[in-house]
């Protein structure tokens, strides 16, 4: 019961956040200099045609009227026409979003699993050599942008050793499996095509590892510091003084409390991938939403820009709600604190 209330309240807040975001993005997109209709039709189009196109896009109306038209379409899933691809924006998003989501999920799995493992190892062997190795790696990971890793991997594993495919999601000689989820790895399993699965997975490795290294380093650092800090707390001393086996203290009592800050950051890192992935998508020629987003921005493709940013915002909100639920499940102080303040 509390859970449903909590969820309803969070979703209620989110509706306002998303509305606010849409107004902001809409305004910013409109005040950017340049004439989208002129850019779409090219410099040689006659002024009369451009004017008619402006009217078609409602660009001649006041901005709040434009927003109204846009919002009416958006709630029905219609984000208007892309001036760049000349297709419906919703159609473009449907095509490009799954590729990025698949990349994000794969990246997320890598940095969650390995980030926490490295952090735990680092805390377990604090100030010994495994810890030092992890810490040096963490600094490198945090301060190196993902595209640098991307280019390095491309050179190393793509050209020098020729181990992994370098571009796209699937080798050209293979056919895309029937579209069910848009995730090649999942669709190919559904279709029973294991060659495509293996090939898709190989294509995923380099871009997702390149993206994962930064957040992984972050996760490892946070897990390590939270564990070493909690290890000195009195409740660990008390548990030790009560003959509870060390292994149980570590895996149960220390773990649950130490993982809370990591989980909070995990969610943020996961959602940020969507915005940061564009250089990596560019390098690996990954047909994803981030790359699309940059392209449409360069073309001042109003409808598409707004749609891409709204999608990123939506993913952030969903991920944050999920993270809040997990953290509340782990930490009674938050769960009960929220109940009490009601």
């Amino acid at each position: 019961m509390h859970f449903i209330k909590f969820l309803a309240r969070r979703i209620g807040h989110s509706v306002f956040v998303i509305l606010g975001l849409s107004i902001l993005v809409f305004l910013i997109a409109r005040v950017m200099p340049g004439d989208p209709a002129r850019m779409a039709l090219g410099p040689r189009a006659p002024e009369a045609v451009v004017q008619r196109f402006r009217e078609e896009l409602h660009l001649d109306k006041p901005i709040y009227v434009q927003y109204y038209y846009w919002l009416r379409g958006a709630v029905q899933g219609d984000f208007g026409m892309s001036l760049f691809t000349k297709r419906n924006v919703a159609h473009d998003v449907k095509e490009f979003l799954p590729a990025t989501l698949e990349l994000m999920v794969c990246t997320g799995i890598i940095f969650t699993v390995f980030g926490i493992l490295l952090g735990v190892a680092s805390a377990r062997y604090a100030n010994k050599w495994p810890d030092n190795v992890v810490r040096v790696f963490s600094y490198l990971g945090v301060c190196t942008p993902a595209y640098v890793f991307g280019i390095l991997f491309l050179l190393l594993f793509g050209y020098v050793f020729n181990l992994l495919p370098t571009i796209g999601r699937l080798s050209p000689e293979l056919e895309y499996p029937a579209h069910a989820t848009g995730f090649i790895t999942i669709d190919s399993i559904i279709a029973g095509d294991f060659r495509a699965f293996w090939d898709g997975l190989k294509h995923l490795i380099m871009p997702s590892v390149a993206l994962a290294l930064g957040p992984m380093a972050q996760e490892a650092r946070i897990t390590r510091s939270s564990m070493t800090e909690n290890l000195q707390r009195d409740f660990i001393a008390l548990e030790r003084s009560q003959a509870i086996p060390e292994r149980r203290i570590m895996t149960r009592y220390l773990m649950r409390i130490s993982i809370i800050p990591t989980v909070s950051v995990l969610g943020l890192d996961f959602a940020s991938q969507l915005g940061w992935a564009f250089l990596v998508e560019l390098i690996f020629n990954w047909p994803g939403l981030s790359r699309y987003g940059i392209n449409v921005m360069l073309h001042k493709d109003l409808n598409a820009i707004v749609a891409v940013i709204m999608i990123i915002g939506l993913v952030f909100l969903v991920v944050n709600i999920v993270v809040d639920i997990i953290v509340a499940g782990l930490d009674p102080r938050i769960r009960l604190g929220a109940e009490r303040s009601k």
Binding site: R233, D234, F235, A237, L238, E239, S241, Q242, Y253, R256, I257, I260, L330, D331, P332, R333
Partner: peptide
Amino acid sequence: ISMIFQDPTASLNPVF
């Protein structure tokens, strides 16, 4: 041997 700690807030694990 058993021990009672100074601060019961710090000596009970808050998430259990």
